[in-house]
């Protein structure tokens, strides 16, 4: 992070290039829902998991996306009262069978 290596030999190592790293993060980001839903083929999944292990930013990102999905899944639902349920049933039947 603090070191600024600008020699040509350093640039030859693709994994060290910040640009390549960013591209990898973007590629990972595009697959995160498939990853969370366990829909990635094995090899891709391993590759992605390896990246997450090496990249704290993506690791944080996937955590927050997982949390988002978990919150959606667990959002409690509103319920109708017995009286509302009965009233709506009568309204529907009245509208369905106009006499």
């Amino acid at each position: 992070m603090g070191k600024r290596i600008t020699t040509r030999s350093a640039q030859r190592k693709p994994t060290r290039s910040p640009r390549r790293e960013k591209e990898r993060c973007v590629a990972v980001l595009k697959k995160l829902s498939a990853y969370i839903d366990d829909e990635l083929p094995g090899a891709l999944c391993d590759e992605l998991r390896k990246h997450l292990g090496d990249c704290p930013n993506c690791e944080e990102f996937v955590l927050s996306l997982r949390q988002t999905v978990a919150l959606c899944r667990h959002r409690p639902a509103l319920a109708l009262s017995q009286a509302e349920r009965a009233r709506m049933r009568n309204d529907i039947l009245r509208a369905a069978r106009p006499r």
Binding site: C25, V26, L29, N57, E60, F61, S64, Q67, L71
Partner: peptide, 14 residues
């Protein structure tokens, strides 16, 4: 796509 480290690390307040 996050443009900064901060955006990558946005937290869900759980």
């Amino acid at each position: 796509i996050p443009t900064s480290e901060g955006e990558f690390r946005l937290q869900i307040p759980v």
